[in-house]
Amino acid sequence: MNYNLAAFTAAYGTSEQLPPSVHPEVAFAGRSNVGKSSLLNKLFNRKALAKVSSVPGKTSTINFFSVEGVDFVDLPGYGYAKVAKSEKARWSELIEGYFNQERSLALVVSLIDIRHPATDLDTGMVEFLSKADLPFVLALTKADKLSNMQRQKQVAALRKQLRLPKDQTVIPCSAEKGIGIDELRKHIENAVS
């Protein structure tokens, strides 16, 4: 898959606006400040295709990007405290509305910051994906901030905290240094082929 061909295709503010799913979809879900947009840009070899902001919680729509007949879906971040309750409710509706539709979901990339224990919202997302039997990988972002030894410890701690089965794929990633990006691409390509 040539990620350099990635193009922004559309943004939707409510789940009712979402068009029917016609291509395999790879959805990205995670907390507001986990680095979803930065990771997408690194996957696509682009600096600013997905909008990155110094202010967490800027992705307030569901954004679609297309690469060779595969749709990459950037879901709004969850759990950001400094937005109005009505905006939080709208984001929640967007995320739930997306997952409740008949989508051609090939893979969900669930992002968690490797430096911290998983939050209740992270745990809830992983439990939801497991119960719904959706194919997913965990991308542990900001891995460049830890040494190799610290990374291994955090992966083990998060596996235990989230009660992940041994065969669950967990990939430490860094949008900054490119750690784990090739491995993530391989999982995406396997999922959509």
Rank of each mutant, 00 (worst) to 15 (best):
N63L: 10
E25R: 11
A118H: 09
F44H: 11
D167P: 00
L184V: 14
V170E: 00
E16G: 01
A11D: 03
K58W: 01
E96C: 00
T123L: 11
K36C: 10
A6W: 13
T141P: 10
N41V: 00
N63T: 13
E87D: 08
A106R: 05
S53E: 08
P165W: 04
K58S: 09
E68L: 02
F8D: 05
A29Y: 01
R103A: 04
E25I: 03
M125L: 14
S53V: 04
F65A: 07
R163T: 12
A48V: 10
V70Y: 05
A139Y: 05
F8I: 02
L40R: 07
I181D: 06
D122V: 06
A48I: 04
T123H: 11
V26Q: 10
T141H: 12
A29C: 02
V108W: 03
V155T: 10
A50V: 14
V126H: 04
E25T: 06
L49A: 03
K58R: 15
S60F: 00
E68D: 15
D182K: 13
E68W: 03
A118W: 06
V83L: 04
E93I: 01
H23E: 09
G30V: 00
L121A: 12
E176D: 13
K82S: 11
T61Y: 09
L129F: 15
V155Y: 07
P165Y: 09
F28D: 10
V83F: 02
P135I: 03
P135K: 11
I171V: 15
V108I: 12
G77Q: 02
L18I: 03
A50T: 10
G124W: 13
T59G: 06
D144Y: 04
Y78G: 01
L184E: 04
L49Q: 07
G178D: 14
I181R: 05
I62G: 08
K166H: 02
K82M: 09
E189I: 01
I181P: 14
V109T: 07
V70W: 07
H23F: 13
L40F: 01
F8G: 01
K145L: 11
P76K: 03
D122G: 03
L107T: 07
E87K: 08
L40T: 11
A81L: 07
A143C: 08
K51E: 11
G57H: 13
E16L: 08
K88N: 10
S66Q: 14
L146S: 08
